[in-house]
């Protein structure tokens, strides 16, 4: 049966565990999977600029032995001529076996999934969801910590518009005894609905603070985020807030020795380059994890659709 991935909560914790196990197996035995998608096509529809997510999907499909079809840019697509997302999804379904789509409008991936006859993977819909980034985050945490339960997770930076933050909170709050420290300036705090509907509804402990160094000693995971210019209507607000938190080696002085530092990337300046050599910096491993989790996801959705 055709199934799409729009939001990370579309996957049960058991399915997340299975995807993580599959991704690890691909990492260990890539040859086992190198022809599993032979003759199948992934369409990457990116209506918003992206390098890493699109290339990650494309690399994932090639490593599975499949092919990729793509459009060069949103400006050259039929959307620029006024075609609806629904029609685009119906048309592309005729060409591809699976679609990965990024779109600036929130909910666009759901519209595509409701109209496509092949599985649709949400590769980011505005500030709403970015489930495959969360898959990358989860595999990274699993590899670094070996567990999700009992972790204290610090989320730092833009917690208001940061879709990766919302998705990660949604995913991790389904595990036992996870605690969140929400580190942000006042204006970029986590939206109330995430606090009430997810954290408070599930009885998850959390605290809000603007003090990164004060929170540092308690953290097992530090998830840094970029203040995204494209999410602001007002450039003045962006300029005022963009440098709120910059992680440097000095700020890591009070951190645990086994802290894992994550970032969905791209970074601008919120993590100093000097931190890159710290063994606790995991953000480039996270990129690799993202590719393997996308491979695992493509396999899962194509299998469920009966395509492979």
């Amino acid at each position: 049966m055709k199934r799409s991935l729009i939001d990370i909560v579309d996957l049960s914790t058991q399915e997340l565990d299975e995807l993580i196990a599959c991704a690890k197996d691909i990492m260990a035995h890539p040859e086992k999977y190198s022809e599993i998608c032979h003759g199948k096509k992934l369409a990457t529809l990116f209506f918003e600029p992206s390098t890493r997510t699109r290339m990650s999907f494309e690399a994932a499909m090639y490593e599975l032995g499949g092919n990729v079809i793509s459009m060069s840019s949103a400006a050259s697509s039929s959307a620029a001529k006024g075609e609806s997302v629904a029609d685009t999804a119906r048309v592309i379904s005729c060409y591809a076996d699976i679609i990965a789509m990024r779109h600036p409008k929130e909910g666009a991936a759901l519209v595509a999934a409701n109209n496509a006859s092949v599985p649709v993977i949400n590769a980011g819909d505005g500030g709403h969801c970015h489930p495959t980034q969360t898959l990358a985050d989860l595999l990274t945490i699993d590899i670094q910590k070996g567990r999700f339960s009992g972790l204290t997770v610090g989320l730092c930076g833009d917690l208001k518009f940061g879709r990766t933050v919302h998705s990660l909170i949604n995913a991790l709050s389904r595990y036992e005894d996870v605690r969140f420290v929400l580190i942000s300036p006042e204006e970029l705090r986590l939206p109330d609905y995430v606090k009430t509907d997810v954290l408070e509804a599930r009885g998850i402990a959390y605290e809000e603070t603007a003090d990164l160094e004060g929170a540092m000693p308690s953290l097992d995971i530090l998830y840094m985020t970029r203040v995204q210019k494209e999410r602001f209507f007002n450039e003045e607000d962006y300029l005022r807030l963009k440098d709120s938190y910059i992680l440097t080696p000095a700020k890591l002085a009070g951190a645990k020795k086994d802290l894992a530092i994550l970032h969905p990337l791209p970074r601008v300046n919120e993590i100093s380059v000097a931190v890159d050599d710290d063994p606790r910096a995991c953000y480039f491993k996270q990129v690799l994890c993202g590719k393997f989790m996308r491979e695992a996801l493509i396999i899962k959705l194509l299998k469920e659709a009966g395509t492979i």
Binding site: S84, A86, K105
Partner: peptide, 13 residues
């Protein structure tokens, strides 16, 4: 009422 929502631009949604 979200200006970023797809319902604001998609035809006949």
């Amino acid at each position: 009422r979200n200006p970023r929502c797809i319902t604001g631009t998609e035809q006949e949604l």
